[in-house]
């Protein structure tokens, strides 16, 4: 069952002087069961795109296929809840959506909205808490009394407890320290590898793209200008420079070494790949 955009246009504030075309003629199919990064400059339409995935926004024109649902502008989709249960969306700075007295209650809020029985919701919530790396002692604390990084985890647990098949994350590591964001990315990777979740991540961090993602969708001015495997995308630096993103450190080193006479043939993604290739060249 796919997630696909077919000739999708989206306009904010149509028929007003403020009308603004945020998505233009998007044709795109995400690979299921993979981690896909969505990158591009601010205002390129990334956030608008992902909000179509659980029908928070409806396409102005065209069709969005999500799992077994078809979303168009013509008829208002019914039973949105069943869709939102299967596609979990985590917004930027999700810690701002915490509101319950206790962390446990806050995480249970989602499942309860989706009519999961209370006892089961509690089990789901405790599991989600464990998944994001917080122990049981947090359950009865107030979500307002913990650190920023922990709040972020609790907020993400609130979506994980709903147990969606597809997890969409809008800049999930913004503002976290390096180890906090690394732990977060490793969590998403684990959810993908062990639980088979399809993961879509909107990000500005190219290190995360190269280290944790399988595919990359590149957006610019409301259009998808590139969609390929991460290893292919980072073969050439020109593609990356096109959208004013920083090159990942690995690619910067690799390009500098290529200019200095090194010859690398195999594709590389991780630091160890580069170290191995360098040592082969030097010891040859």
């Amino acid at each position: 069952m796919p997630i696909a955009f077919e000739k999708v246009n989206f306009k904010y504030a149509p028929n007003t002087p403020f009308a603004y075309e945020a998505l233009k003629n998007i044709d795109l199919a995400f690979e299921m069961g993979k981690v896909t990064a969505i990158i591009g400059p601010t205002g390129s339409g990334k956030s608008t795109l992902v909000q179509h995935l659980n029908a928070l926004l409806l396409p102005s024109e065209g069709t969005v296929l999500v799992l077994d649902r078809t979303i168009t502008n013509k008829h208002k989709p019914k039973e949105l809840k069943s869709l939102r249960q299967r596609v979990g969306l985590v917004f930027q700075f999700p810690e701002y959506q915490l509101f319950e007295e206790t962390i446990l209650k806050d995480i249970m809020f989602g499942p309860l909205n989706f009519k999961v029985p209370e006892a089961q919701a509690k089990v789901l919530a405790m599991n989600a808490l464990k998944l994001v790396g917080l122990d049981e002692s947090f359950a009865e604390k107030s979500p307002l009394d913990i650190s920023g990084g922990q709040k972020r985890r609790v907020a993400i647990a609130g979506i994980l407890a709903i147990n969606p098949d597809v997890l969409v994350l809008d800049e999930p590591t913004a503002g976290l320290d390096p180890q906090g964001s690394k732990a977060m990315m490793e969590l998403f990777l684990r959810l993908n590898k062990e639980n088979g979740k399809t993961i879509l991540i909107v990000t500005h961090d190219m290190e995360h793209v190269i280290n944790y993602c399988d595919n990359v969708v590149v957006m610019k001015d409301g259009e998808v200008i590139n969609h390929q495997r991460v290893t292919d995308y980072f073969e050439r630096k020109t593609q990356v420079e096109d959208i004013q993103m920083n090159l990942p450190q690995l690619l910067m080193f690799k390009e500098a070494l290529l200019d200095g006479g090194f010859e690398f043939k195999q594709p590389m993604r991780y630091l160890e790949d580069l170290a191995e290739a360098i040592s082969k060249e030097i010891k040859r």
């Binding site: 928070l56 939102r84 985590v90 959506q97 989602g110 909205n113």
Partner: peptide
């Protein structure tokens, strides 16, 4: 803007 964002975030958690 903030209100819109929170509304969407909670809608994603099944708020109707």
């Amino acid at each position: 803007d903030e209100t819109n964002r929170i509304m969407k975030a909670q809608a994603s958690r099944g708020v109707d």
